[in-house]
Design a protein around this nucleic acid. Sequence first.
DNA 1: TTGAAAGCGCTAACAG
DNA 2: CTGTTAGCGCTTTCAA
Lengths: 320, 320
Amino acid sequence: MSVTIRDVAQASGVHVSTVSRTFSAPHLVNAETRTRVLAVAEQLGYRPNRAARSLTTGRTNNIGLIVADLANPFFPPLIKAAQAAARRQDYHLFVADTDENPAEEEDLVLAFSKQVDGIVLCSPRLSNKALEKLAKRVPFVLVNRRIRGLTTVVMDVAQGARAAMEHLAGLGHRRVALVSGPSGSWTSGEIRKAVLETPDLETVVIGPNSPTEEGGLAVAAQVAEAGVTGVLAYNDLVAIGLIEGLGALGVGVPGDISVIGFDDSITGRLYRPKLTTVAMPAGDAGRMAVDLLVQSMSAATVLETHLVVRESTAPPKGVP
Amino acid sequence: MSVTIRDVAQASGVHVSTVSRTFSAPHLVNAETRTRVLAVAEQLGYRPNRAARSLTTGRTNNIGLIVADLANPFFPPLIKAAQAAARRQDYHLFVADTDENPAEEEDLVLAFSKQVDGIVLCSPRLSNKALEKLAKRVPFVLVNRRIRGLTTVVMDVAQGARAAMEHLAGLGHRRVALVSGPSGSWTSGEIRKAVLETPDLETVVIGPNSPTEEGGLAVAAQVAEAGVTGVLAYNDLVAIGLIEGLGALGVGVPGDISVIGFDDSITGRLYRPKLTTVAMPAGDAGRMAVDLLVQSMSAATVLETHLVVRESTAPPKGVP
DNA sequence: TTGAAAGCGCTAACAG
DNA sequence: CTGTTAGCGCTTTCAA
């Protein structure tokens, strides 16, 4: 095998415990000794074995990150920020993908549990009860799901949805549709509530839908026939799929119908028409979740969202 | 702490080694005993501690995956497939991001080395020499980088680039530009070579460039003034940035200039005009890399690429 | 400030 | 088929 603490001890003429201390409690060791040990370690290419360390300390310095779908453009910025935050604090990040499958989600949490100090669970599809039970086995923080008593980081989608509705109302729209997300999604529920409470706007809810381009595409005809002039979609992908589908039906965006997305993903930002969308602070959420775990703090954090107006919204036909 | 093999042994009235065998060599244990142990384990919520296991076996059942930029849409499909492949074989996947920084890349490899059975290094920016040296410390497979003697999975970008050039030539273009990628990029070099060898086409190389939308945007003016009617961009993001920049200059795509991307990313597929692009089998590469690592096989694999013709290419002006 | 010794949870010979 | 034993690489009392 490779070079161990013992090799370093031997080569530098001290006991293994001194070498150990040099790395995990440097202040407890004589400066000269430390320098020497460090030099030898460097020269031998010694790296502490974290598995062995974790066996004695009970800590792994690993964090697990579980998302619904790695290929959904919403997640990569979150993962990127989480990884950077972890790395800054000398943690490593496991990443896994549930494919929107609650059973897989539970399996993954359990599989990770012995190997991590905590888990970041993004947009979990598991029931509250299941989540509460799991929380007893391993610390975790929930992203975009709020459960009393658990540590959470949520983005204020209700506020974002309200802003979107107000934008539509301000443009002169009166009857709009919400193309909602998957049924297990907490954010979709929050958005729904916020939308239905909006005054001055008659809202029809279409869904649940898959949170993908296909999801949007599939309801295009339904939207076209709903007699609405504006739409709030569950996310940018759904919005784009919808716009594509509408286009195929000869319905223009924003000419005939205005469409607003959610996420402010790179895909939506570059799409034409450039998507009006609710920006989600995914990077902030990833970073905060990791920080909360590392500091093992419990908290219920709410992150602001905001509307980004671009080119997929306009006044309804007939309104100047 | 949590429930260990000892608790299970005690509760089921057998020795720890029997419990151990029940999990790691089930065929060596009496069916009845096994059933009983499994039942007790299940009931106690026992999960083997992989860190402890790895200490004795020398294997971790972990794999590290290092990419240049998690937020680049090229990588998520690769990561997703790699994770799925790992999970299928009971491996966990560490993911990290180097931000295109070679020093960070090396650090990450070293940091992972003791905690994984192998590393998948995607589009590394490190020198051949540095990579060869690292390969002595931990097994890895290189994706999109070819070095003799190391295990590699590369996508045949040269072939893809040739197909793109032939498509352009077939459309009637005679003078084109290659908007290349970062200088350390192996794929960019391969593409460059292939492009310059293409007959019947006069090619000007513009770059190196950052592999992002900004990279493309930044050279739009240069492209507009290069007297070319076609462009092959390093990736979809660069292509899109370029098209945006060209648009701002009043140059239409594909009306005035045809643009081809690379990757066939979701962002390019949804963009308007829908991007003509060279499809890269990123998922296959991720899966194969993990499989090679798990089977600890060495090989030099080449994956096919293919041109997807969509709407960002057309005959040059004046050619019907 | 350093050394000695025990032990983290598990596996792998080796006996029986 | 099952129990015994030693030990993986490291940290952590406890003494010196």
